[in-house]
Amino acid sequence: MPSLILNGRGTDARLDSHHVVISRHEGDASSPPRHVPLHDVDRVVVVGQPHISMAVLCELMKRGLPVSFLTPAGRWLGTLSPDNNLNAARRLAQYDRSRDETLSVPVARALIAAKLQNARRVLQRLAANRSETQLPAHAQCQEEIKRLIGRTTRETDLESLRGLEGLGSARYFGQLKRYFPEHMPFPERSRRPPRDPANALLSWTYTIVLGELDAQVRSHGLDPGIGFLHRLT
């Protein structure tokens, strides 16, 4: 799923047939233009304020390719995506079901369990790559997250499920810091703003994933602002 990233001032993007032509200018210097075939692109990420022609944006919309906009610091601003699925009935059903706890709680339970299970697998792979699966700290973290996964099947309200999510995240990041290199330490999770390069890298990755999810939800005619884990207040 290739992404085309247009980063910062001095970047120009224009349309030439079925290609995006990208040029970089820094002062009096400029780099040779690059031709990127649109059939090789699945999405576009715009960082900062590059110059993008309207022809490029229109062609991306015609092809159904989402465009995510980020600040220079990597904060997600929003996604421009073609609204090809104007299914009002589907969105009304989504709104109704989000208020139905007999449906929202099982969905939230499945989401939290999947998130914790994936966190556990990431740590397993990192430990296996370093032959650390037998270390006490790794084994303890694995067991704690496993217990949290088991508890998700018994919780019956959203607040308790969110609490399990928070506990799992704390265990995950507490163990994840062991696997960062010395030149990029990860003391703890911080955001808005991230306080070090490791957190900046994580925040950047999560921002890209957020744009992906937003575009996918919209492409199915659903509202990304309505979910099953958090209630509207």
Rank of each mutant, 00 (worst) to 15 (best):
A89C: 05
T156A: 02
S98D: 06
E132Y: 02
E132S: 11
T156K: 13
L111N: 06
H138V: 15
P106F: 00
N85C: 08
P82K: 11
N85P: 00
L164V: 08
E101I: 12
R121P: 00
R109G: 06
I149A: 06
V122M: 09
A88I: 13
C141R: 15
S104D: 08
K115I: 10
R125P: 01
L116K: 06
N129I: 15
I149L: 13
R151F: 05
T102N: 07
L116G: 04
A119S: 09
R90I: 13
V107W: 04
E143Y: 03
S104C: 07
T133R: 09
A119F: 08
V107C: 09
D83P: 01
T152H: 02
A119D: 10
S104T: 09
N84Y: 00
E132Q: 12
C141H: 03
N87I: 13
R147L: 12
N129E: 15
V122F: 01
T153H: 05
A139H: 13
Q94L: 07
W76I: 14
A89M: 12
N87K: 05
R154N: 10
R151Q: 14
P136Q: 14
V105F: 00
R125F: 04
A88P: 03
D100H: 03
N129V: 15
K146Y: 05
R109M: 09
R125S: 10
E155N: 01
E165H: 01
L86P: 03
V122H: 08
L77Q: 12
D100W: 03
V105G: 04
R109S: 09
N129F: 05
K115Y: 03
I145W: 07
R99S: 04
A110S: 10
A110K: 14
S98I: 04
L111W: 00
G163L: 11
L77N: 02
R130P: 03
N84Q: 11
A127V: 15
L164M: 11
P136K: 14
R99H: 10
T102P: 01
S131Q: 15
L77T: 08
G74S: 06
E143V: 10
E165C: 02
I145L: 10
L116A: 08
E155M: 13
S131R: 15
L103V: 10
Q94S: 03
D157S: 05
T152Y: 01
R151C: 08
R121K: 13
R109T: 08
Q134M: 12
Q117P: 02
A113T: 11
Q94H: 00
A93Q: 11
Q134C: 13
G150C: 09
L158E: 06
I149N: 10
P82W: 06
D83T: 11
S81K: 06
L126F: 08
R99T: 07
R154P: 02
Y95P: 00
P136M: 14
